[in-house]
Design a protein around this nucleic acid. Structure first.
Lengths: 180, 180
DNA sequence: TAATGAAATTAGCTTTTGTTAATTTTTAAT
DNA sequence: ATTAAAAATTAACAAAAGCTAATTTCATTA
């Protein structure tokens, strides 16, 4: 979320390309990097016991991203990250971030601000799950991130808002008929 | 979430009592304090257009709490905080925290760690909304926070997991019959 | 351009949830 | 202990969502 311009780790970033549909981060890995997305969209998803893919997040160009449980708690992740378009990333080793944070006030402040931004985003999403029906979550998503929605398959949107693809299709139909 | 012991703002904290069922934070306020809960439980909730109360959060003894949009963005909140038991709080002025953060490395690190912990908690909750049905969310809640659940009315639990009180009652009945 | 495969939609049916209202149970107060 | 109020449960019905499978649409590539 934090623009890279304000991020002093830039000189240590290494470019990385991921082709559309390729897996960037594998399940079970302790992925101790943060990465800036220069171009493209990725999604992170889980595979349920019944084998379904459930998309949790989208991240796209201009955003920083990471696997929270990996960088905060050194835990292996159950998430999988997949590029939905050809992606250009800049990777930064998180151990280096930690090391530099030992005596770098500005960096720690930046990290704090970043965590706070992510927190606000996540809390908004929890609120929407508590307050809104799936239909409203979909409408808000279209209103707030129209350009992203267009670039992502509906089936991924569906689990992002907590429903099945079939149900999202019905929601779309309902909304279309209400407009007329 | 962060124990107060590790929190150097303790000397600046002011005690505050809130009786059970009383409103602690009013809607529309820019509540620029953080507070430590020495004793008791509070909930934060929204009132929907149709007048229903939707509980978003519980916070209880041993935890730090704040209204994110107030302290991060100086925005008035739509949340209401209510004490569910007689509460003993320790309030800390957030402007003071900000001022002390200007040149206090340890404090900024503590705040970063706190934001990260809250973020992990919030992300887990989003995951549960995407991956689990209400029934599973309820079961996980019982498994993970049994002592808290017992102290809180079911109708508040219901909106916390994203269903109506009637639906939670049915979920409870289903689970009870499955056990036998 | 045609063919192939994936995605989205639709249909039919089942399960769950929402809604409203009545009833029972629990809690708190007199 | 009795009463009053609130909370939880139950019931009945409508609406929405899940599930499976068939069909249509869309996108990719040979």
């Amino acid at each position: 979320m934090e623009p890279l311009g304000s991020f002093q780790m830039l000189p240590f970033a290494k470019p990385r390309m991921v082709a559309a549909s390729e897996i960037y981060i594998q399940q079970g890995k302790v992925f101790k990097k943060i990465f800036f997305i220069k171009k493209g969209i990725l999604r992170s998803y889980y595979i349920t016991e019944s084998g379904e893919e459930k998309t949790i997040f989208f991240r796209w160009e201009g955003q920083m991203a990471a696997v929270p449980e990996c960088i905060f708690d050194q835990e292996p992740t159950r998430q999988i990250w997949q590029a939905l378009e050809d992606c250009e990333l800049l990777e930064i080793d998180f151990d280096l971030v930690e090391k530099m944070s030992e005596n770098n006030f500005t960096l720690v402040r930046t990290r704090m601000g970043f965590a706070q931004k992510m927190l606000l985003e996540s809390l908004k999403r929890v609120e929407s799950f508590v307050l809104d029906k799936p239909e409203m979550r979909y409408q808000k998503l279209i209103a707030q991130k129209p350009e992203i929605i267009k670039r992502v398959a509906d089936k991924h949107i569906a689990s992002f808002i907590g429903v099945t693809p079939v149900s999202l299709s019905r929601i779309r139909k309902r909304l279309a008929s209400q407009k007329k």
